[in-house]
Amino acid sequence: MASLLRRASHNFVRSLTQRKVSSNSVPLLLSPTQVSDLAKSSTPVSILDATWFMPGSPRNARNEYLAKHLPGAQFLDLDEVASPHELGLKHMMPEERVFASACEKLGIEPSSHVVIYDAHGVFSSPRALFMFRSFGHEKSSIINGGLPRWVDEGLPVDNQPPTDPGPTVYPSPAFNKGAIRSYDQVVSNSSLDPAIDPTAELVLDARARGRYLGTDPEPRPGLSSGHIPNSLSLPFNLFLQKHNAKDGSEYTTFLPQAELRQTLHNSVGADRAEQIIKGEKYVVTSCGSGMTAGVLWLGLKLLGVDNVSLYDESWTGYAMRSTSKINKSL
């Protein structure tokens, strides 16, 4: 208990000291037009396609990238730029040198403005942005609306094999260890009631409501649905809005800030939402495998929330362990 209290106090103080710096940081979201203008400027820009599809999907992210991508874009495989895991989990946060080596292969330098997109609109790109920001690469953003919005706004795409960006030098960065939570930390925190214990971190679950309640199955065969004790449901799609493209397809973007705030109020209650926004309550985002937890992380960042981490293993790692307590009711 004492260690949790010290950690919460340390994180709160750290967030206060960083708040002024973060307010002047590179935008988290960019429109396609802003990215097009940025690419024409003298600023060194590295564009990454970070598309990822759920297990069992017939779609292949790398093949789709090769068929259609932004001019000059490289493909970032989030399952490849990752650390091995004892349970075989994918896209876990990479070690410092793994991240740096990936940047060097992708032609990224520490001074590069990294612009990330995906083929959904907003889905996997926030997870990639979370990775870059956690390694201190503040010059990083996502395209709000991704590849579909880029195409819908009439901007050019490329279907030629990508050119080799040439090697760069990217020193191993320092990783912000407070950015992620481990299984042991989540289990310890799950015994604390956030309604009465000020040291409790609030876990927000980005999965669909039925999976959280245990009434719908998980997409991964053999894995129980349900939720971590004392966690709250906030499906990631509630932070997003759908758009109809000219070709009849759909894509997503983030809600405007006021609507993000109202969604948070509706999901966790007005008082608790304001505690989160003011930095008085620490938040941990979770999902099925650590991917769409990035959407909640980014949505909270857009609201100015500094005190937010991500449970890297998320529900897959939690539910795979026989010792985990699983709730199936509110």
Rank of each mutant, 00 (worst) to 15 (best):
A2M: 09
H10C: 05
F12I: 02
R14L: 12
S15E: 04
R19W: 01
K20C: 07
V21L: 13
S25E: 14
P27G: 03
L30V: 08
S31N: 04
P32D: 07
T33Y: 12
T33E: 14
T33W: 15
D37I: 06
P44A: 06
L48I: 00
W52M: 13
M54W: 11
M54H: 05
N60L: 05
N60C: 13
R62C: 06
R62Y: 15
Y65M: 01
A67C: 06
P71S: 07
F75Y: 14
E80Q: 14
A82Q: 09
S83G: 09
H85N: 14
M92P: 00
C103R: 10
L106C: 02
S112M: 09
V114W: 05
V114G: 07
V115P: 13
G121D: 04
V122K: 05
F123N: 04
F123H: 12
P126D: 03
L129S: 04
G136F: 14
H137F: 11
N144L: 10
R149M: 10
V151Q: 10
D152N: 15
E153K: 01
E153T: 09
P156H: 10
D158P: 00
Q160G: 13
P161L: 09
P165G: 03
P167K: 12
V169I: 13
Y170D: 03
K177R: 12
I180K: 06
Q185P: 02
V187P: 00
S188Q: 15
N189M: 09
P194N: 01
P194G: 05
A200D: 07
L202S: 05
L202D: 07
L204A: 09
A208M: 12
R211H: 03
D216F: 04
R220T: 13
R220H: 09
L223P: 03
S225P: 15
P229V: 02
Q241N: 04
H243P: 13
A245S: 13
E250C: 11
Y251K: 04
Y251H: 08
T253K: 01
F254V: 01
A258L: 11
S267F: 00
A270T: 15
E274R: 03
Q275V: 02
I276L: 08
I277K: 01
S289P: 00
S289Y: 04
A293M: 10
L296A: 07
L298S: 06
L302W: 08
N307H: 09
V308R: 08
E313S: 13
E313W: 11
W315P: 00
G317W: 08
S322P: 07
N327R: 14
S329I: 05
L330I: 12
